[in-house]
């Protein structure tokens, strides 16, 4: 276990030395929160009785997780492979699960910090209501985190270089954060955008978390989709992961 702990500590320190990545992940939801917070958080019948802030914050939490795992982790691993860092680690007695596990833990820690900051600001400054069900919310958070990390690993495994990882992450990720409802409630989106969102796991992460948070409802179908993504993507990623570029 000790190598995993040391690797995670060092990878976390390296991540904090990339201010652009940290700002992009943590600052954007805070800016959006401030812009939307001007309207207050009064119950809105169009949002099923929740306030605007209540409807937005669960989506922002998914945004933080997805940005960290898909943009951050997948790109870091591709960069490490391109430049030979993974090769150097592989010829040491460090185990593959320690190397990859440290990246997962680093980005989960980053997401956790982002989530705590976001919820603390939303609760103190914008009257965010606390989760209607902590159990349902925690379950949705865990599965959302697991499925985004698994997706990040899958991207890092199947894409050959940093360039392709960046390109594909951009093509998948930027539309996804809009049509999934991570940045705006899906109700506000045009019909065709909602249909595109229907096929994205991220949509179900937002849905499960929002329903758990505002209504205390366990959205079993959505949780099932997140669990399936995790269970399918992880072994595929492990199987096809390459430690060297060609």
């Amino acid at each position: 276990m000790r190598p995993l702990a040391v690797l995670t500590r060092v990878e976390s320190a390296l991540l904090l030395r990339e201010p652009a990545a940290v700002l992009f992940t943590l600052a954007l939801p805070l800016v959006l929160l401030t812009l939307n917070g001007a309207q207050g958080n009064a119950p809105d019948p169009d949002l099923g009785g929740a306030g605007v802030i209540d409807a937005l914050v669960p989506g922002y939490l998914v945004y933080v997780m997805a940005t960290s795992a898909i943009m951050g982790m997948a790109e870091t691993l591709a960069d490490y492979r391109d430049r030979g860092v993974l090769r150097r680690m592989r010829i040491s007695p460090l185990r593959p699960w320690q190397i990859l596990g440290s990246h997962a833990l680093t980005h989960l820690a980053m997401s956790a910090v982002g989530a705590v900051v976001l919820v603390a600001v939303a609760a103190t400054a914008f009257d965010l209501r606390l989760p209607a069900s902590w159990a349902a919310t925690s379950t949705a958070l865990l599965l959302a985190a697991a499925s985004t990390v698994a997706t990040g690993f899958l991207l890092a495994a199947v894409l050959p270089t940093v360039r392709t990882t960046q390109a594909v992450a951009a093509v998948l990720y930027f539309p996804a954060i809009f049509v999934s409802g991570a940045l705006f409630p899906r109700e506000a989106l045009p019909e065709f955008a909602q249909r595109i969102g229907d096929v994205l796991p991220m949509t179900y992460a937002v849905r499960a978390l929002r329903e758990a948070w505002t209504d205390g409802v366990v959205d079993w179908p959505a949780l099932g989709i997140l669990a399936s993504v995790t269970v399918v993507a992880t072994p595929v990623a492990v199987r096809v992961f390459r430690w060297e570029s060609n």
Binding site: V10, Y80, V85
Partner: peptide, 22 residues
């Protein structure tokens, strides 16, 4: 091995700590 590098921002001490742990 040839063409093996470390992350640009990793310090000497951090590199030693990571590999020593193994």
């Amino acid at each position: 091995l040839q063409q093996a590098v470390l992350p640009q921002r990793m310090t000497v001490r951090e590199a030693m700590a990571v590999f020593a742990s193994a």
